[in-house]
Simulated assay, not measured.
Amino acid sequence: MDPGNQTSVSEFLLLGFSQDSEHQLMLFGLFLSMFVVTVLGNLLIILAVSSDSHLHMPMYFFLSNLSFVDICFTSTTVPKMLVNIQTQSKSIPYAGCLAQMCFFMVFGGMDTFLLTVMAYDRFVAICYSLHYPVIMNPHRCGLLVLVSWFLSLSYALIQSLLMLRLSFCSNWGIQHFYCELAQVLTLACSDTLINYILLYMVMGLLGFVPFSGIIFSYSRIISSILRIPSTDGKYRAFSTCGSHLSVVLLFYGTGLGVYLSSDASSSSWKGMVASVMYTVVTPMLNPFIYSLRNRDIKKALQRLLERKLYVH
């Protein structure tokens, strides 16, 4: 690339849904509604878990962390998209774009790790129930969450620092509704080989290793459940992990759809819809899945709402 075509970039242009001027009001209302539902739903899960002593156990500790991460994950992309739709602006500052990419990688990685840790928790609870309190003690639970944060933050910071060394061409248009890393790398005029190597290595690790761990955990769980003699016992055992399995299928199904579907390329309308499923719809549905399929959460939410009504 001719160095003369390189220039100092002060902002990028997000050309995603902001291009569709005919449906601006509808898009704004839709995404604002989903954002509010996501935040309120996940906040209710956090409040229910923290305020109810019956839920002070590893499974719900991890669930409250997942709810917090989902709020942050959605907040990374949706508010800026809403501002751009409302103001008819497409711009995002260079520093803001890097920050958005960094936080997106942190919270996306945390989602993956927490779902894996929750699968491990259900594996221990069902396959090693007698040793469960010893294996999943508070110290180990806290350590698992801290390690997840460390790995997610480390990758995000390394990739962000590598982005700082890149120079960009005069075309600053990102064909997406947020600063998606792979899209931004296509705009760079300097060598991006190291960035792509790190990107695909981490995508492979975050896709293969955690998912393999989840598959292994649930294969052992299902095998153990099938050995339970009573039908009622099988139902109770499966109900303890049914919600998590639903969330895993939703998260990985939509996530893999974004990166593996040839039709859903990130520069197409289908690609953006697939990304909305992964970044907005899945975090919004998680509280509903857990509250509708989990008796303990439903009871805790009822007690929480009753206390609030009684106070007022």
Rank of each mutant, 00 (worst) to 15 (best):
F208M: 14
L162C: 07
K234F: 12
S267K: 08
Y235R: 15
M57Y: 06
V280D: 00
L166E: 07
L32D: 02
F150P: 02
F123W: 15
S246Q: 12
T282R: 01
L144R: 05
G108P: 12
F113N: 14
M272D: 07
Q86L: 14
A264V: 01
F150T: 01
M118D: 10
T38G: 06
P283Y: 00
V134Q: 13
P283I: 00
G173R: 15
Q86S: 15
Y278C: 08
R140P: 02
A182R: 09
L14T: 05
R236Q: 15
M105Y: 02
P79W: 02
A300T: 12
C97N: 05
L198D: 11
F61K: 10
Y290I: 06
P138R: 09
M277V: 01
L15N: 11
I158D: 01
D263F: 11
Q24L: 12
C169E: 15
S190Q: 14
D232T: 13
L301P: 00
Y196G: 01
I71E: 01
R122W: 02
L13K: 15
S129C: 12
I289H: 02
L143G: 00
P79N: 04
Y200R: 10
I215V: 15
L181F: 03
F104Q: 13
I197T: 08
L226K: 14
C72V: 04
K80M: 06
